[in-house]
């Protein structure tokens, strides 16, 4: 399993690996928002948590179709499925790699971009915490979407449509944590809900992913 983790991280870092794709998209979205909304800093401060969360979610979505499609195209997925590694673990590792290459850079970039959006300083810690807690759920749910569409040519659109509704609860509670936090309100309830969604997804999704891949490999 560690071998797979290292291999996938190495592939992501090398040319054509797509590392930074999500981050670049996140930067573009967030940097363009003030131009579109206008220079009213108080308006920006209100929408900043939502924009950061939406940007993060769309960046995740953008990089999902690569997770399994590349392995499927070159035949590695068949070989991984027949290897001694449990397929559930393979899917878990795929999600971890996606999170490390997409989720973590987003969490680290969020405070800087928060300043661009005039996010109140007390909100910065909460946007980082909520993204840090929510992006693992986005990754593992994304792997599930990728597993559903593995083997389809140009499955990106279908993948987005399938995954979008599954992302909604994470988005609602994640953005709520960030919004309340930035306004100095109590965050316990949405924070606990967000943690619950992530924990539940991490526990159940690898099993679902593996089942779906087995069906798709037939």
């Amino acid at each position: 399993m560690r071998a797979l983790l290292i291999r996938d991280l190495r592939l992501a870092m090398r040319a054509g690996g797509g590392f930074g794709l999500g981050l670049a998209f996140f930067l573009i979205v967030v940097v363009l928002v003030p131009f579109a909304v206008g220079p009213d800093t108080s308006a920006l401060a209100v929408i900043a948590p939502g924009i950061l969360w939406l940007g993060a979610l769309l960046s995740c979505l953008l990089s999902l179709d690569r997770i399994l499609a590349l392995d499927w195209e070159d035949g590695s997925l068949d070989l991984l499925a027949t290897s001694p590694l449990p397929l559930e673990a393979v899917m878990g590792v795929k999600a971890v790699v996606h999170w490390l290459t997409t989720g973590v850079p987003l969490v680290l970039a969020a405070p800087v971009l928060g300043i661009l959006l005039n996010l109140p300083s007390q909100g910065i810690i909460w946007i980082m915490l909520s993204l840090g807690l929510g992006t693992p759920a986005l990754s593992i749910i994304g792997v599930f979407g990728a597993a559903l569409t593995v083997g389809f040519k140009r499955g990106g659109l279908l993948l987005s449509l399938l995954v979008m509704p599954l992302y909604v609860p994470t988005l609602i509670f994640g953005a709520e944590v960030a919004r309340r936090g930035s306004q100095g309100m109590a965050v316990e309830t949405p924070f606990v809900m967000l943690a619950g969604i992530t924990a539940g997804s991490l526990a159940l999704m690898p099993i679902a992913c593996a089942a779906v891949v087995r069906v798709n490999l037939r």
Binding site: A3, G75, D78, L79, P84
Partner: peptide, 29 residues
């Protein structure tokens, strides 16, 4: 775990070296 399967597709990662590709599968097995 008795069968090693080789399909039509090579299952090779083009951005890894020959030794890295093989070492990965060695570790998996």
């Amino acid at each position: 775990d008795a069968i090693a399967y080789a399909s039509h597709a090579d299952g090779i990662k083009s951005m890894l070296s020959v030794a890295e590709n093989l070492r990965f599968w060695a570790q998996v097995f």
